[in-house]
């Protein structure tokens, strides 16, 4: 499902205009990311939680130039689905 389909589905669900939905979802994501970037974790009940995860620095080997390089540590956005969602998805 592409972002376009997602926005359409959301606008049907909320009966908002697609342009409004786009704006609202962009703002929502912006708020979440800012909160997460400050070190908080954002938990959405029934969906899961978002938090910053730190990836350690690691060494890589370039076989062409035969050089060892260091990839510096970086932060990434981690998501863990909630237990409720897991239950819902595996009901059958």
């Amino acid at each position: 499902m592409t972002n376009k389909e997602f926005i359409e589905m959301l606008s049907r669900k909320t009966s908002f205009e697609t342009s409004d939905v786009k704006e609202l979802s962009a703002t929502l994501i912006d708020i979440m990311l800012h909160n997460v970037a400050e070190g908080d974790s954002v938990t959405i009940q029934g969906f899961g939680s978002f938090e910053v995860r730190e990836k350690a620095r690691r060494k890589i080997y370039n076989p062409t130039s035969k050089n060892y390089m260091v990839v510096p540590p970086k932060k990434t956005l981690g998501y863990k689905m909630s237990a409720a969602l897991k239950e819902r998805l595996n009901m059958e």
């Binding site: 499902m1 997602f6 589905m9 959301l10 669900k13 909320t14 908002f16 939905v21 609202l24 979802s25 929502l28 959405i44 029934g46 969906f47 969602l85 819902r88 998805l89």
Partner: peptide
């Protein structure tokens, strides 16, 4: 309503 719908849509998909 919107925030709820946002995440529900993902699950519904």
């Amino acid at each position: 309503v919107f925030t709820k719908a946002f995440f529900d849509t993902v699950v519904d998909a």
